[in-house]
Design a protein around this nucleic acid. Structure first.
Lengths: 203, 203, 203, 203
DNA sequence: GATGAATGAGTCTTCATTCAT
DNA sequence: CATGAATGAAGACTCATTCAT
């Protein structure tokens, strides 16, 4: 299925990818049929199978693309920044911004976790994200800015907290991502305890 | 479908509920067919439709039961405890313990979020959970133990962080729930910043 | 797919088997769709998949049944006969009679040979047939009634000659099987050379 | 579709014919798609439909070519030979040799018989073959070398026997064609009865 | 001559649900 | 209560064929 595509072909492929993403996110993976996707673009059924091996492969491709895109965004955000705490902050901020722009992706990930066959693809992406965070956390521990706790716990805590706030505040309540990011960062850095140590004052 | 059931009937119903939960969690909701469920119990298809209106209603019922059970567990854990911080701690701890015992439930929730028709049922449960946490948080703010931040953010942060650690450490890595709870509580209370203010000392 | 069937179920299964055999023989395996088969019986599509795993398995089942039935017929025909030449004769005769009654089967075999996935099932049946003939031929050689040639060649020669005459004379030209059998036996026993050694005079 | 072709065009056509023959023989007619054929040659779909009206016509063409080629081979083999028995022998021998070189063709014929639309083309070829043999047989009967039996039976017996031995011994067991021809001729001429009348002594 | 793209009817198969017994 | 049987809409996917470029 590694066809060489003309520019028109690439465009079609993109259309399918985008439309399918939208439908999967709105309706769910199973309730969205291939027929629905091609009808949405007003093309014949064969077109779908010209560009993809099948529904499952299409879904995996969507996941892969999203993970790549998010990561690229994060990397760009922390480029040239040395302070580990600051890198964590920027990572959270860019994730919030990206998530706000790619609302669809959240549900897709959510769903992917519920069927064994999609889990590996997902785990791959999460492992990368975790490794990225861990690197900053370890730097932070080394220079005394971050408490000496298992970085794996910290990484997953950040991931989980961020993900949940994205869903509830950005997607469900349309709070501006920058605002949500502030709160997330505050909680990540200092927890809920009172007695602020004057930490965050970014952006 | 509110049949009055004999005790044998109740048992059957429970078997169906449990077996379906297990299959849904392992295989996913859609890939698990009613046929598979009844075959797993070695009964005819009629049995299923005798006890349930259909597959969808069965799933909703599973969701409802799980939410109820978790909540009951949490309530029992904090019964008679006044300190709000302590109540949050106990909530996290009991959630971890319950999640460890009900691994299947996580995926079901995950999936339910991806299809519009299941979201309302889900939201209902989460709203209750959030309200519970918020109550403790507000008490904590009032008595100065918790930083004065929007309790909603705090509640969802706790929920997201807890959920993620449960999945990764309890379900994927089989870390004992008590241990994971320690870490979760530490992070929730004090964040990742260095400079511990002598907070938690586990039960 | 080893369902326990009620007598009504067994009947349905037989209907499907018989109707499919007929359509496969008339139209060919591929041109005959499952839809056509179930429509022919005026039942829903699900019925087919209730009784069979799929089209391919159905076809294999038909082959197996036919081979079994033919063999049983042959065995019955030579039961209690000792003379090997006579046994060969009776084998040919009963084959001709059976083939005349089961015209459909010929084409199915024909087709099965052309797709790799059906060949094993076919070979199994032919191996049995060849072994049966070889046994008689070896007896014949031992008692001096049959020329001392590799029995494998003889067996396959008989098989090939018989099969061809069945097709052309019984199926295409409607010659009575008994008559075709006479000719086949004469040719098998004495070849085409002139100078008859007064062999066959049976039935 | 009687295009005038350049020499390059003729070559392309031949490539398609040969590759399709191979695939049809290996995989079967239906399971082999036009897409597969053109991909195998690394050309576009248009090429196929430039040279052929469609898949069916291509198949018929393959059939026709093979029959022609086999016949030409047989004719050349018996050229100038007068003895009818000898002519039958040489026919069998050349058929075996040709079949050994064109293993693919057997399955194609086999398949063609199973679909009504291909039968006429096939019958045409077989009729010619039968007529050829009958001519020799009649000569043989006239000069007293062949037993006075319906030549049609004899012709088909020879055909059936030869075909089967080709399949089993040449194609399945890789016995040299000359050797198989010996056995075939012996059985055709003298049958299986003991008491050889000193017939064949191979070329 | 040749290609990539498109078509869409048609294929096999699944499955939630119903129902006679 | 329970079962085997039946339904049929819907699903994913295939493929011979056509056509603009």
């Amino acid at each position: 299925m590694n066809r060489r595509l003309t520019s028109r072909g690439k465009e079609r492929r993109r259309q399918l990818l985008d439309f399918a993403t939208q439908r999967f996110a709105e309706n769910g993976y199973h309730p969205t049929s291939v027929a629905e996707i091609v009808q949405g673009l007003g093309v014949g059924k064969g077109v779908f199978y010209w560009y993809f091996d099948g529904k499952e492969q299409l879904f995996l491709e969507i996941l892969r693309e999203a993970q790549q895109d998010l990561r690229r965004t994060q990397q760009k955000a922390i480029e040239g920044v040395d302070d580990p705490i600051r890198r964590v902050e920027l990572g959270i901020r860019s994730t919030m911004a990206w998530s706000s722009d790619h609302a669809e992706y959240y549900k897709l990930t959510q769903f992917a976790m519920t069927e064994e066959r999609f889990v590996p693809a997902l785990r791959k992406g999460q492992d990368v994200a975790v490794k990225d965070i861990i690197r900053h956390v370890e730097d932070g521990i080394r220079c005394g800015a971050i408490r000496d706790t298992d970085p794996l716990y910290i990484a997953h805590s950040i991931l989980g907290l961020t993900t949940q706030l994205v869903r509830v505040f950005i997607h469900e309540r349309n709070v501006p991502p920058a605002e949500v990011a502030e709160e997330a960062i505050a909680l990540v850095l200092d927890g809920i305890h009172a007695g602020d140590r004057s930490s965050v004052t970014s952006s």
